[in-house]
Computed example of a mutant assay.
Amino acid sequence: MNAPKPVPKPYLIRTALEEILADLVEGDPVPSERDLAAQFAVARETVRQAVHELLVEGRIERRGRGTVVSKPKLIQPLSLKSYTEGAQTMGRKPGRLLVGWEDVDPTPELAAALEIESGQQVMRLERLLLADDQRIGLESTYLPKHRFGHFTETFDPETSLYAAVRAAGVVFGAAVERIETVLASPREAELLESTTAMPMLRLNRRSVDTEDRPIEVVRSLYRGDRVAFEALLTDR
């Protein structure tokens, strides 16, 4: 019978760290890597690996020169609700920062998804998504210009786009959404105040109205350490 394999030291340190975090609350400082290495009599590299895992999971975060306990992740529902509604449900303050808003020539794939003819442009709206003033996501929305061109004059990009669509008399009917784990580009990481090594959640959505006419194609990139998603599943 083979002897059991020894438990890796980083796992033991991570377990000990989780016990420490259980007694702390949001914003409390976490012991430094040097102090933890001395406390558990291990190399700082061993501590650093365990700390990195907790950073990636969003349990802790860097603030200045120190590390503190993070806020709980923002839980977003997988539904036809807007990001605003999801944030408000959790008691968080939603916000948006405009990155860019322009008319662009669509790729053949985008033109097909929005069911527009060759030569027609689409509106591209790129915004940073905030929760309690933290940057949590980067969203690029493509809208058929022939249908929503008036938004250029009437829509405030720091407010809910879905509310504006509904106010225009358009009713969301259905959407197909795909979620993948990716790494951010250098530009995306900078906008999200993150790094290219931090895992991101990428959502690709195509929404249609109740008459099956395309409303939008959206590509959203969320920080995996700050956001999680959930869905209600039922067989009824």
Rank of each mutant, 00 (worst) to 15 (best):
M1N: 13
P4R: 03
P8S: 05
Y11P: 06
Y11V: 12
A16C: 06
A16K: 07
L17C: 04
L17D: 06
L17T: 00
I20D: 10
L21S: 01
A22L: 08
D23C: 09
D23L: 11
V25D: 12
V25Y: 07
D28A: 12
P31F: 13
R34D: 02
R34N: 07
D35F: 12
A37Q: 08
Q39H: 13
F40C: 11
A41Q: 14
V42H: 10
E45W: 08
E45Y: 10
R48V: 03
A50K: 12
V51C: 13
L54Q: 08
L54H: 02
R59K: 13
R59L: 05
I60H: 00
I60W: 00
R63C: 00
R63T: 06
G66C: 09
V68R: 05
S70N: 01
K71W: 04
K71I: 03
K73Y: 01
L78F: 10
S79D: 08
K81D: 15
Y83S: 14
Y83V: 15
E85K: 15
G86W: 00
G86F: 00
A87T: 02
Q88F: 12
M90N: 11
G91E: 04
P94H: 02
P94F: 05
R96P: 03
L97F: 05
V99R: 06
G100S: 02
W101H: 07
E102G: 02
E102H: 02
V104H: 02
P106S: 09
A111K: 13
L114M: 10
E115Y: 06
E117R: 15
S118A: 14
G119S: 13
Q121Y: 05
Q121S: 08
M123G: 07
R127D: 00
R127E: 02
L128Y: 05
L129I: 06
L129K: 13
A131T: 11
Q134L: 05
R135M: 04
I136C: 09
L138Y: 08
S140W: 02
Y142V: 05
L143W: 07
P144N: 11
K145G: 06
R147W: 06
R147I: 08
F148N: 12
F148M: 13
H150K: 15
F151L: 15
T152N: 11
E153K: 15
T154R: 15
F155G: 11
P157S: 09
L161K: 13
Y162I: 14
A164R: 12
A164P: 12
A167L: 06
V170H: 06
A174W: 13
S185C: 07
S185F: 01
P186F: 12
P186T: 13
R187T: 14
E188Q: 15
A189L: 11
E190K: 15
E190V: 04
L192Q: 03
L192F: 02
A197C: 12
M200A: 07
R202G: 00
L203W: 04
R206K: 12
R206C: 10
S207L: 09
D209A: 03
D209L: 03
D209S: 05
T210C: 03
D212F: 06
I215P: 03
V218R: 07
R219A: 00
S220A: 04
Y222T: 00
G224M: 01
R226H: 04
A228M: 07
A231D: 08
A231P: 08
L232T: 09
T234W: 01
R236V: 10
R236D: 10
